[in-house]
C-alpha cells in the first residue's frame, strides 16, 4: 500500500535541512528581530510569516540540560548522555539535542558545545548526530 501524495516540509524547514547537508546552520529572524534556531515558518508569538534567514555558528552554549543514564530506543546516543538546550552563537533561542559528554560531571549550564556532524551529507536533522563539549 502506498499514499497517493508526497509530503513537503515547506520552504523554511526545507532550506534549513538543505543547509545541514552542507554543514551550514541557518536561523530565521522573528517578528522582534531575534534569530530563531531551528527556524520556523511563522513567528511563535505573533504568527507572522517569516522569511529572513541568518547563518549561525555550529557551536554554542548550553542553557539547560538533563542527564540520561538509560537511553531509550531511537534517541541520538545509546550510552549515557545529556539532553540539552543549546543556544548557537548568533541565535537568540535554543535548540534541543543530545550532548556526548561521557560523564555527568562534565556537564554544566553555560558550557560550550559544538555540533558533531554526520560523515555523510544528509538533508535532514540526522546531519547533526549530537553535540560534544568544545575543546578548551
Amino acid at each position: 500500500m502506498e499514499y497517493t501524495y508526497t509530503r513537503s516540509v515547506g520552504p523554511v524547514i526545507d532550506r534549513f535541512f538543505s543547509g545541514l547537508a552542507d554543514r551550514k546552520i541557518q536561523g530565521i529572524k522573528g517578528s522582534d528581530g531575534k534569530v530563531i534556531v531551528p527556524p520556523t515558518e511563522y513567528d511563535p508569538y505573533t504568527g507572522e510569516t517569516l522569511s529572513e534567514f541568518v547563518d549561525v555558528a555550529d557551536a554554542g552554549t548550553v542553557t539547560t540540560w538533563a542527564w540520561v543514564t538509560d537511553p531509550r530506543p531511537g534517541q541520538p546516543l545509546q550510552k549515557p548522555f545529556a539532553w540539552a538546550l543549546v543556544q548557537l552563537d548568533g541565535a537568540d533561542t535554543a535548540m534541543l539535542h543530545a550532548v556526548d559528554a561521557g560523564d555527568e560531571s562534565r556537564m554544566s549550564t553555560g558550557m560550550r558545545v559544538k555540533v558533531h556532524w554526520c560523515d555523510e551529507p544528509v538533508a535532514d536533522l540526522a546531519a547533526i548526530e549530537y553535540f560534544e563539549p568544545e575543546a578548551s
Partner: peptide
Amino acid sequence: PYYLVPLWPDTVAMAALQARALLE
C-alpha cells in the same frame, strides 16, 4: 515531527530540562 520526533525526546527528559532551568 521534523525537529523533535527524530530525536525521541521523552516526557521525563523534557520535564528534567525544565526542572534544571527552575533550579538554576
